Simulated assay, not measured.
Amino acid sequence: MIFIITITLILLYSVNEFINNEIAKIKPTTSEETHKERITKTIVKDGTAVETITEITEKNPNINSDKNAARIGFLERILYFIGIVSQNWALISIVVVFKTIARYKEIDKQIKAEYFLIGSFLSLIWAIVISVIFIAFDKIHNLGMVNYILNSVTYNLKFLN
């Protein structure tokens, strides 16, 4: 059982690179995303400046943002997976709503909206594919994990009422 859960998590994480490549195809490469940074180094020998070197490098301030987006996408796919396997459609709706609220200001721009939609749809489709594989594997090998998950969710809902 741990093996299946581990494989499922690996499959859910493995799509990060694919989604990043697809999004990179439409992501804008404007001057606001890439900044040039000027670094000046002075070589000092015996207390006097011998040589001054100036380097101009391109710096992308969105590198950490891209890493955080990949982490958020992985967590998003896990929540989609849990929602699909447990047939908890409200969880999937909540993930979509929170993601939309968090990115509301960025969606105003056309390119950002396309970036947002493609990433969201690819995450959802990948989570559906992995969920179907997980459910099929469970049914073929009579492991009963899906039934256990469904019974746990049903029991918890009855307990709340």
Rank of each mutant, 00 (worst) to 15 (best):
1 M>G: 09
3 F>I: 15
4 I>D: 07
6 T>N: 06
7 I>H: 01
9 L>G: 02
13 Y>E: 03
13 Y>A: 15
14 S>D: 04
14 S>Q: 07
16 N>Y: 04
16 N>K: 10
17 E>H: 10
17 E>I: 08
18 F>N: 05
21 N>S: 05
23 I>H: 09
23 I>R: 10
25 K>C: 03
26 I>G: 06
26 I>N: 11
28 P>I: 01
28 P>A: 08
30 T>F: 10
30 T>H: 12
30 T>R: 15
33 E>D: 15
34 T>N: 09
36 K>W: 05
36 K>M: 05
37 E>M: 07
37 E>T: 08
39 I>S: 03
39 I>W: 02
40 T>D: 01
44 V>S: 01
44 V>A: 00
44 V>N: 08
45 K>F: 09
45 K>M: 06
45 K>Q: 10
46 D>C: 02
47 G>H: 08
47 G>D: 08
50 V>H: 09
50 V>A: 01
53 I>Y: 04
53 I>D: 05
54 T>H: 02
54 T>N: 05
54 T>W: 01
57 T>K: 13
58 E>C: 01
58 E>Q: 11
59 K>T: 06
60 N>V: 03
60 N>G: 00
63 I>G: 01
63 I>N: 05
65 S>W: 13
66 D>G: 13
69 A>R: 07
69 A>E: 02
69 A>S: 06
71 R>P: 00
72 I>W: 14
73 G>E: 04
73 G>M: 06
73 G>C: 03
75 L>A: 06
76 E>A: 12
78 I>E: 02
80 Y>S: 01
81 F>I: 14
81 F>M: 12
83 G>Y: 08
83 G>Q: 05
83 G>H: 08
88 N>Q: 09
91 L>I: 10
92 I>Y: 12
92 I>L: 11
92 I>A: 01
92 I>H: 04
93 S>E: 06
93 S>P: 06
94 I>H: 10
95 V>M: 14
95 V>L: 11
96 V>Y: 14
97 V>C: 06
97 V>W: 15
99 K>T: 02
100 T>K: 15
101 I>F: 13
102 A>E: 14
103 R>M: 09
106 E>V: 06
109 K>D: 15
109 K>Y: 12
110 Q>G: 00
111 I>W: 08
112 K>L: 13
113 A>D: 01
113 A>V: 03
113 A>H: 09
114 E>W: 13
114 E>T: 09
114 E>D: 12
115 Y>G: 02
116 F>Q: 11
119 G>K: 10
120 S>V: 01
121 F>L: 08
121 F>C: 03
122 L>M: 11
123 S>N: 08
126 W>S: 05
127 A>N: 11
127 A>W: 07
128 I>P: 01
132 V>Q: 00
135 I>Y: 06
139 K>L: 10
141 H>P: 03
141 H>T: 14
141 H>E: 02
143 L>W: 12
143 L>G: 06
143 L>I: 15
144 G>N: 04
145 M>L: 15
145 M>T: 07
145 M>C: 02
147 N>T: 00
148 Y>N: 11
149 I>H: 02
149 I>P: 04
150 L>T: 00
151 N>L: 04
152 S>R: 11
152 S>Y: 09
153 V>Q: 00
154 T>L: 07
155 Y>H: 07
158 K>Q: 02
158 K>V: 02
159 F>K: 13
159 F>R: 10
160 L>D: 07
160 L>I: 15
